[in-house]
Amino acid sequence: MTVVNDIGLLERTITALGRPAWEVMPEDVDRVVADLAVKGRKTSTRREYVQILKDLHRFLQARKAPEIEAAFGVRLVCPVDEFHASRHVGDDSPALVPPPTPERVAKFFDFMK
């Protein structure tokens, strides 16, 4: 990640997430990607948002993880779900359907209890 080239995208990504990078959860990433899809943004744009977040977390883990944990009591974990990372930004993503809510997912998996 080059700061000069990517600072604008990084600022837009953090603004869209609405919270500090160390507080971002996978649901936040899904929400932002779904919002971009609904707005008609290209697959490549959605991938750029996900990639910049992955790059930021890789940097923070390598250089700032101890300070973040000491200051905020948070162990830094990248919120990008690696299994679904390429799927939820692909052309085959549902453009108008947001990801399921946690309640809907819980209801779906009730049969496993």
Rank of each mutant, 00 (worst) to 15 (best):
T13C: 13
R58P: 02
L10P: 06
L96T: 10
G18V: 09
N5K: 12
I52H: 13
G73F: 01
E11M: 08
A37Y: 00
V50N: 00
A16P: 15
R87C: 00
R31Y: 09
P66E: 10
I68F: 05
T45P: 05
V105K: 12
E67M: 14
A16G: 06
T101K: 02
Q61Y: 01
P99S: 08
E23T: 07
T101Y: 00
P100M: 00
N5R: 14
A65H: 12
A85W: 03
F59L: 11
P98Q: 03
A95P: 05
D55R: 14
F111Q: 10
T101H: 03
V29I: 10
T2H: 09
A95D: 10
R12Q: 14
S93R: 14
V74M: 02
D6E: 14
H88E: 04
F72I: 01
L53H: 09
A65G: 14
F108Y: 11
D110A: 01
G90N: 13
R41K: 15
L53V: 12
L36N: 05
F83D: 09
F109T: 11
L10W: 09
D30F: 11
W22E: 05
R87I: 06
R75F: 02
V29P: 13
Q51I: 04
T2D: 13
W22Y: 15
V38H: 08
G8N: 04
R12N: 08
Q51L: 04
A106W: 05
D35F: 00
E82V: 15
D91R: 10
N5M: 09
T45L: 00
E11R: 10
K113M: 01
H88R: 14
D110L: 00
R46G: 05
S44N: 07
V33G: 02
T101N: 01
V4R: 13
A62V: 07
K39L: 10
K107E: 15
R63Y: 15
F109G: 04
M112T: 14
R41H: 07
G73V: 04
P102S: 07
L96R: 09
V105A: 06
T2C: 06
P20W: 03
L9H: 08
K42S: 15
P100T: 07
D28C: 03
A85F: 07
V89L: 00
K54H: 05
L17R: 04
